[in-house]
Amino acid sequence: MSAKGCSPDNAAAEGFFGRPRQEFFHKRSFAGVSMDGFINMLNDYMVWYRDRRIKTEFGMSIMDRRRELGLVA
């Protein structure tokens, strides 16, 4: 295991979990949302993040990039 407080080890996880906080949590109020409703909203966000969100590195979504490379049908 790495030394306590060694930030390069945590950079990838911090970067990933920081993005949903900015794009999903801080942009809405969850007042009156049930736990099941929240889970469904979070699941929808994660599917959008994985399949449809535009990645600046590619200029397209990751699924479009995979299709371009012939990795998916």
Rank of each mutant, 00 (worst) to 15 (best):
V72T: 15
A31D: 11
T56H: 11
R67M: 07
F16K: 03
D51Y: 07
Y49S: 00
A73S: 14
S34G: 11
S34Q: 11
D51L: 09
G32I: 03
V72C: 06
A12H: 12
F30A: 05
R28G: 01
F17W: 14
S34H: 09
E68G: 04
F38Q: 07
P20N: 03
D64C: 04
N40C: 12
R21Y: 06
A11Y: 07
E68K: 11
Q22F: 06
A11M: 08
F38V: 09
K55H: 12
L71N: 05
R52A: 13
I39S: 11
V47Q: 09
A11D: 08
R19H: 15
S61V: 02
D9I: 09
C6M: 10
S2Y: 15
E57D: 13
D44L: 10
M60D: 01
L71F: 11
A31M: 08
G59F: 04
G59Y: 03
D51A: 08
D64G: 01
G32P: 00
Y49W: 13
F17C: 06
G32R: 03
G18H: 02
P20A: 01
F17D: 02
E68F: 07
Y49M: 03
A3V: 13
H26K: 15
M60G: 00
L42Y: 12
E57T: 14
D51M: 08
R67K: 15
F24D: 00
A31V: 10
I62W: 00
G15F: 02
I62C: 02
D44S: 15
E23A: 14
F30N: 03
M60T: 03
S34R: 08
S34P: 01
W48T: 05
R66C: 06
A13I: 12
G18K: 02
N43R: 13
F24L: 06
A73P: 01
R67L: 08
Y49C: 00
N43M: 14
R65C: 02
R53G: 03
L42M: 15
R52W: 07
D51N: 14
D9C: 13
R66H: 12
